[in-house]
Amino acid sequence: STVKVRLGHLEVTLHNVSEEDVRELRELWKNGADEEDLRRWLEEWKK
């Protein structure tokens, strides 16, 4: 499914993403990950 995730002022649209992935991303964000960390996660996730 396609999910729009809003993290601060960063809005990311993920395609074919699982609930688990979204949860993981939100956890990262809650734990103080900055945009760099999130971008890195997204790069990994896209592979």
Rank of each mutant, 00 (worst) to 15 (best):
N31R: 07
E35W: 09
V3C: 03
R6W: 06
K46C: 04
R23G: 07
K46L: 15
S18C: 04
G32A: 05
E44Q: 12
R6L: 13
R39E: 08
V17E: 01
K47Q: 11
N16V: 02
N31A: 09
S1A: 15
A33I: 09
V3D: 01
E44H: 12
R6I: 13
L14Y: 01
G32I: 04
R39Q: 10
D21T: 09
V5P: 00
N16H: 11
R40F: 06
E43M: 05
A33G: 10
E44R: 12
D37W: 05
E36R: 08
V17K: 01
G32R: 02
V5I: 15
H9C: 10
R23C: 09
L14F: 04
R23H: 12
W29T: 15
R23E: 11
W41R: 01
L7H: 02
S18F: 05
R26T: 14
K46R: 13
W29N: 12
E35P: 08
K46N: 12
D21P: 01
G8K: 05
D34I: 08
G32N: 08
T2Y: 05
E19M: 10
E20D: 13
R6M: 13
E35D: 10
D21E: 10
A33S: 06
E36I: 09
G32L: 07
E19C: 07
L25F: 05
H9A: 13
L25Q: 00
R23Y: 12
S1L: 14
E19Q: 12
V12C: 10
E43R: 03
G8F: 01
L7Q: 02
K47W: 03
E44P: 00
T13D: 04
L38D: 00
L42W: 10
R39F: 11
R39K: 13
S1F: 10
R23A: 13
R26M: 15
D37E: 15
L14S: 00
K30P: 05
T13S: 06
L38M: 08
S18P: 07
L14M: 07
L42M: 07
S1V: 13
E44W: 07
T2K: 08
V5D: 00
V3F: 01
V5R: 00
T2V: 10
K30N: 14
K4Q: 09
K47I: 06
L14N: 00
L42P: 00
W29V: 15
D37I: 14
W29F: 15
R40T: 08
W45K: 12
R39W: 12
V5Q: 01
V5S: 00
L25M: 04
A33D: 03
K47P: 08
W45P: 02
K47D: 07
K30M: 14
K30C: 07
V17M: 11
K4L: 04
R23T: 08
L28T: 01
W29L: 15
T13Q: 05
R26V: 12
E27G: 02
A33R: 02
G8N: 05
E36N: 13
N16G: 12
H9L: 11
K47R: 11
K46Y: 15
H15D: 07
R40N: 12
G8I: 03
L28H: 04
E35A: 09
G8M: 02
L38I: 09
D34N: 13
V5W: 00
H9P: 11
D34S: 15
E24K: 15
H15G: 03
D37V: 14
